[in-house]
Amino acid sequence: MDLLASLPEPARSALGLAVAFGLGTLIGVERQYRQRTAGLRTAVLVAVGASAFVDLGMRLTGPEGGTRTVAYVISGIGFLGAGVIMKEGMNVRGLNTAATLWCSAAVGAFAGADLPLEAVFVAVTVLACNTALRPLVKLIDRLPIRESETEATYEVQVTTAPGAAGPAQDLLVERLEAANYPVGAIEVEERGEEAVEVIATLTASAVEAAELDAVTADLARAPGIRHATWSIQTTD
């Protein structure tokens, strides 16, 4: 820090931009290699932009200005990151890329605040998260998952005739509560002119699959019920 303090302000600004450029490049290369939405140039521009704004804030009003600028950079990158997040049906893509952009801004902010060593530490940590943790993620993804160990939204559906929706709804709630699965909400949806579907959403966030299988099998045998099943939607 003493060595940096002895440099002229333009030299410190140039050094901060160079550090942000170099570290942003390292982060961006990994994103580009994996063909992510935000690749090399985006990561570099985020790091360099954060460095430039923080440096400008410090040049104008000192450390206090740099602190305020960092706060604005954090919120601004949040909007930028939202642009790379895409929802496709029940799936959400781009969260990791958005988080990487956020961390790239942190790298740039450290560089712009004349803290190059700390910027290197953050960049190395970001790269470790995106590379070294991948084998662990794949290992966890391959592990078998029990429904009772997941947090999710569970729905039980029965199909019946339009005129039998009321009794089917009562029967559905009765059988679920008897199995100790209280119903949080219930809906009736039309399936053409000759059938309706009664959908019960459970308040439980974890269930035993075998228990719901038994409930739906019992419901399917009930008079007036044409079909019974259940589904799961994960919360993340």
Rank of each mutant, 00 (worst) to 15 (best):
A99W: 06
A113M: 12
P116Y: 02
A106W: 03
V92N: 11
A109C: 12
M90G: 01
G112S: 04
F110S: 14
G112T: 01
L95M: 15
T100N: 01
L117E: 14
A105Q: 01
A111N: 02
G112H: 05
L115A: 14
T100K: 04
N91I: 10
M90I: 13
T100P: 02
A99S: 14
N91E: 12
W102P: 12
V92L: 06
A106Y: 00
R93I: 10
W102T: 10
W102Q: 13
A113W: 03
G89H: 07
M90F: 10
V107H: 06
F110V: 03
N96T: 15
T97M: 11
V92K: 08
V107D: 03
T100I: 11
G94H: 02
A98R: 07
R93P: 04
G94C: 12
P116K: 08
G89P: 05
A99N: 09
G89L: 07
R93E: 12
D114G: 09
V92R: 05
V107A: 11
W102N: 00
L117N: 03
L101S: 01
A111K: 00
L101Y: 02
R93C: 03
V92C: 04
T100G: 13
N96D: 06
G89R: 02
L117R: 03
A109F: 06
A109R: 06
G108H: 00
A105R: 06
S104F: 03
L95K: 06
